[in-house]
């Protein structure tokens, strides 16, 4: 068995003077959602790695901003950077996430960022 070759230059070539995630700008297909849309987080299988927190799965949220384009963390973690998608900043009501959250503080929220393939319209 021969040793694999790791291309250690590819990211530095792409991102130098530009930055990351800026270096992936323009590579994603058109965004499926816009600010104000209501979305639900899919409970996709999360074997080995994910950055879509368990506490968000199945919950509904409102899109507050389209933040950037990037490969999803799940792919980039193995240096697979071909499939770039939009990332959305989403606002969840605390009462949506936590059934025991006190109604007196029903205005409280969580904001976090999730890539498009985890989202469905609701």
């Amino acid at each position: 068995m021969s040793k694999p070759h790791y291309d250690r230059e590819h990211h530095v070539k792409k991102a130098t003077g530009i930055g990351d995630p800026q270096c992936f700008k323009g590579e994603a297909p058109p965004a499926k959602f816009k600010v104000g849309d209501r979305v639900r987080i899919k409970d996709l299988p999360d074997l080995f790695y994910t950055r879509t927190q368990a506490y968000t799965r199945g919950a509904e949220a409102t899109v507050s901003r389209l933040v950037y384009e990037s490969p999803p963390a799940e792919d980039e973690s193995w240096d697979n950077t071909e499939n770039v998608e939009w990332f959305y900043s989403l606002v969840f009501d605390m009462t949506e996430l936590w059934p025991d959250y006190h109604a007196a503080f029903a205005k409280d929220t969580v904001e976090t960022e999730i890539p498009e393939h985890y989202l469905e319209a609701c």
Binding site: Q53, S89, F105, V110, E111, T112
Partner: peptide
């Protein structure tokens, strides 16, 4: 106070 919304920002990706 309760009329202030607390927004917890969970910095989970590249921002």
């Amino acid at each position: 106070p309760e009329d202030v919304e607390i927004r917890v920002v969970d910095s989970n990706q590249k921002s």
